[in-house]
Design a protein around this nucleic acid. Structure first.
Length: 236
DNA sequence: CAACCGATCACCT
DNA sequence: GGTGATCGGTTGC
């Protein structure tokens, strides 16, 4: 990485455009690793209304995407799109670059980003972020003690795992399902700061029973914010 | 530290 | 009525 690249990284993060998401989920997954998920919460939800802010959002939280899984659509038995279009999964069949958020196990939300051109299903599950901004807001959303955030374990607990990630950024089905992630004024966008990494980890997907052997989980190798215990090699 | 279990709800059969 | 792209606490070796 050159010094020029680093300067770009710091000062000119770019919005990721819709066309980025139009391809095959496996390709988009690999490209999405290292990008930044940015969450802005509108002033309407401000906790301390007495404090006026010149900014259009009361807080900003962001994390680098370090772990994802690809779901391939109607031909993938593990995918929500497998049974074909239903009311629940209709976002997956819509245009690329939209959030597909669903409620699971009665307790958690999971966030995906739709891929493929309109009419074809396919998506990417966001499994873990490395927090890079707004950690205190994330800790509050997670009911964690912000005082402990100097501890690497506490920082990892913020957004490692798909359910935790959604809780940290206050992502819910009600608020976010179907929302585009490529619009400049959205409260949920993906950005590219030019970050590059050297090695990618590829393993089977987590927590599924069908098509459980396909190597469709992608992570930044060695990154300490990847969920689970194995951050290096594949299990047979 | 791995294995297990309960929580708790939307969806589909 | 069964199941699930999870999490975190407890159990037991």
């Amino acid at each position: 990485m050159s010094a020029g690249r680093i300067a770009t990284t710091l000062y000119h993060p770019k919005l990721v455009l819709q066309e980025f998401f139009a391809g095959d989920p496996r390709d988009v997954s690999r490209a999405l690793l290292g990008k930044i998920l940015v969450r802005r919460r509108p002033l309407d939800n401000l906790d301390c209304k007495s404090h006026s802010s010149p900014f259009p959002f009361d807080w900003l939280a962001a994390g680098r995407i370090v772990e994802v899984e690809a779901y391939l659509g109607e031909n993938d038995p593990a995918a929500h799109a497998y049974p074909g279009r239903t009311p629940r999964n209709s976002v997956l069949f819509g245009p690329p670059g939209h959030a597909y958020v669903y409620f699971i196990y009665g307790t958690h939300f999971c966030m995906n980003i739709s891929c493929m051109p309109e009419g074809e299903a396919g998506c990417i599950l966001l499994r873990a972020l490395e927090p890079i901004m707004g950690e205190c807001a994330m800790a509050k959303a997670r009911h964690q003690d912000a005082q402990q955030l100097s501890n690497i374990r506490a920082r990892k607990a913020l957004a490692s795992g798909p359910g935790n990630l959604c809780q940290a950024l206050a992502i819910s089905r009600e608020r976010d399902n179907g929302k585009p992630v490529y619009e400049a004024h959205s409260d949920l966008v993906v950005m590219d700061d030019g970050f590059v990494f050297s090695e990618m980890l590829v393993t089977p997907r987590v927590g599924i029973t069908k098509a459980a052997d396909l190597p469709l989980r992608y992570a930044i190798a060695g990154n300490p914010f990847v969920s689970g215990k194995r951050t290096r090699m594949n299990a047979p």
